[in-house]
């Protein structure tokens, strides 16, 4: 009998699972259809909610393992890993999937070490070959893809956000909630303070469906305001190339590329970005790529779906206007 596919829940720390968990559950559901096994969610939190549990069921979790404990409040690998490992061993699960998020990329790595199994981090697709799971993950900052498989279960993987689709929600599904009895260590590290980033009012870079991004062609930090205005119109996050970050125009957390964030939005719009190999590595899995650059030879045009050769300072305000007109319709 094939064991269960466990999906670790990523929540907003206020009792609501994030959209990426729907994506992870969706992919697990599709794989379980081919391989057998049941898809279940595992939620470690200090605060779950009824709506959250219901959401998980609607996303396809046949069962929700709920570990609710004050010690699970801030994510701490030393606290989260032991109970999860204990349960995974006890129930002989087939696979444990997580999302590529700050918490889960660390959690799944620790868990793999504790269970002595392989981890495919930052996976972007899966296939089944001879009854075995094969994951595809970008390597060399996305310059190549690596196909990997596991020598034994459980198969551990983290999935890149925005790449996998959730299943159609099963309206009205009710979760079967299990609250297993398992020891949760108290941990040695303590959260002293959370410094919230100054909110831009825009979505988080790695979670956004649309990303607008500026490079050296922005000419200075003050000009990013035109990108922010465009971003507000279309609900996009604002990113930057390494050139713009290294010049000190944007904080590093906005950098897209090999030494920054890897993004896969539905729509990427790059302005004044030439398309250095390091930058392309971080955004080439975007579904639609738009490039605006005054240099017709800029490498970014080679991978762009749509390009405009022109002055971004002219194009950006026009675009904002045009999008506004469209969205007001």
């Amino acid at each position: 009998m094939v064991g269960a596919f466990w999906c670790i829940v990523e929540d907003d720390r206020a009792g609501r699972p994030k959209k990426v968990t729907g994506e992870v559950l969706g992919e697990a559901t599709r794989l379980a259809r081919q391989l057998g096994g049941q898809v279940e969610a595992v939620w470690l939190t200090d605060k779950a909610s009824e709506e959250g549990l219901k959401q998980l069921a609607e996303w396809g979790a046949a069962r929700v393992w709920l570990l609710e404990d004050p010690a699970l409040g801030p994510y701490r690998g030393e606290v989260w890993t032991p109970p999860l490992a204990e349960l995974a061993a006890k129930y002989g699960v087939q696979a444990i999937f997580g999302a590529v998020t700050a918490r889960q990329r660390e959690l799944l790595a620790r868990l793999a070490a504790r269970l002595g199994v392989g981890l495919s981090a930052d996976s972007v697709s899966f296939s089944v070959q001879d009854g075995k799971l094969v994951a595809t993950r970008p390597v060399y900052a996305g310059k190549l893809l690596s196909k990997v498989t596991w020598s034994k279960p459980p198969w551990l993987a983290t999935l890149r956000p925005n790449v996998f689709k959730p299943e159609d929600p099963k309206a009205g599904a009710t979760p079967q909630v299990e609250r297993p009895s398992v020891a949760i260590p108290q941990g040695t590290m303590t959260l002293a303070e959370r410094k919230e980033e100054v909110s831009t009012g825009l979505p988080e870079l790695t979670e956004a469906d649309i990303v607008v991004s500026g490079g050296r062609g922005m000419k200075g930090p003050e000009n990013f305001v035109i990108l922010e205005e465009l971003a507000k119109v279309i609900g996009a996050a604002v990113g930057a190339s390494r050139a713009a970050v290294d010049a000190g125009w944007r904080p590093h957390r906005f950098q897209i590329g090999q030494t920054g964030r890897t993004i896969s939005p539905k729509l990427y719009l790059g302005f004044g970005i030439s398309g250095a190999i390091q930058h392309l590595a971080g955004m080439r899995t975007s579904k639609i790529i738009v490039a605006v650059n005054k240099d017709p030879e800029a490498p970014i045009f080679k991978i762009a779906d749509y390009g405009i050769v022109g002055d971004l300072f002219e194009v950006v305000p026009l675009l904002a206007q045009e999008f506004k007109r469209l969205l007001e319709k």
Binding site: G116, K147, D305
Partner: peptide, 17 residues
């Protein structure tokens, strides 16, 4: 524990305009 099956080149993006 994790076995590399093979490396692959990226699928080409469809030509843009």
């Amino acid at each position: 524990q994790l076995l590399v099956v093979a490396l692959e080149a990226l699928p080409p993006r469809p030509p843009g305009r």
